[in-house]
Design a protein around this nucleic acid. Structure first.
Lengths: 117, 117
DNA sequence: ACGGGTTCTTCACAGCACGTTGACGCGCGG
DNA sequence: CCGCGCGTCAACGTGCTGTGAAGAACCCGT
């Protein structure tokens, strides 16, 4: 049996919480435990900013210690895997000083922040 | 869950105070900490004039020092970002000698943009 | 208990975003 | 016409984030 709550979806990313399977674009993406729990925490909060402290608590079940960069490192690993599975998309967005936000968006075109005038 | 007090709205601008997300016209607008706090202070006082002193106190948690231009600079940054997100609108209005007021209004009829220089 | 492969943590350094500040020009109001 | 408040730009110092890599910890079959 499969209830609706067994599957998390956000864009083309699908997480089967019943067996810990991650599927992106129809293909299975192998994830380590940390990767999986971090991604799940983000996808469950799609489109919302989640602080490092919350992410660490959700994926590590412990309080984030000062100076611990683990979250950053695993965010990077997830980005690589997701980008590899679904090129041309941005999934995990950094909100400076706030945290990270999951949302499938078209690939960021070239930078043009100050290119006007 | 999401209670009504988690979301501030003013025109097409929406601020989710629970996680610090700013949405304008349905699109997320990344904000730095200062930008976010200043915008929040203005939106919370929609349609009312807020003095520089008050804005600084609200966004910086300190007293505005004489000659400090920070508020002006960040007002400008907000105007650029809001205008970029929702072209054809004016959001932050200057009240000379008094302060600033947030209100979404139709764009001030401006000159032909194609005839520069 | 041992070895090999994988996962996790930690570190170092590079790069960039942010906040501050000073300079300059404009425009409002007197 | 003058003075001062405001708009705008850009450089700079600082701290936060991105990234690669080394080493420790862990898992597992043998």
């Amino acid at each position: 049996m499969e209830t609706a709550s067994d599957v998390l979806r956000a864009g083309d990313v699908e997480i089967r919480t019943s067996d810990g399977l991650v599927i992106a674009g129809g293909r299975v993406i192998p994830m380590s435990l940390r990767e999986y729990r971090l991604l799940r925490a983000l996808v469950q909060r799609e489109n919302r900013i989640v602080s490092r402290e919350d992410l660490y608590r959700l994926a590590w079940d412990a309080a984030l210690r000062d100076g611990d960069r683990s979250v950053d490192v695993y965010i990077h690993k997830l980005r690589v895997k997701l980008e590899r599975a679904l090129p041309g998309h941005a999934f995990i967005h950094t909100h400076f000083g706030f945290g990270y936000r999951f949302a499938q968006e078209p690939a960021p075109a070239l930078r043009d922040a100050t290119a006007r005038r």
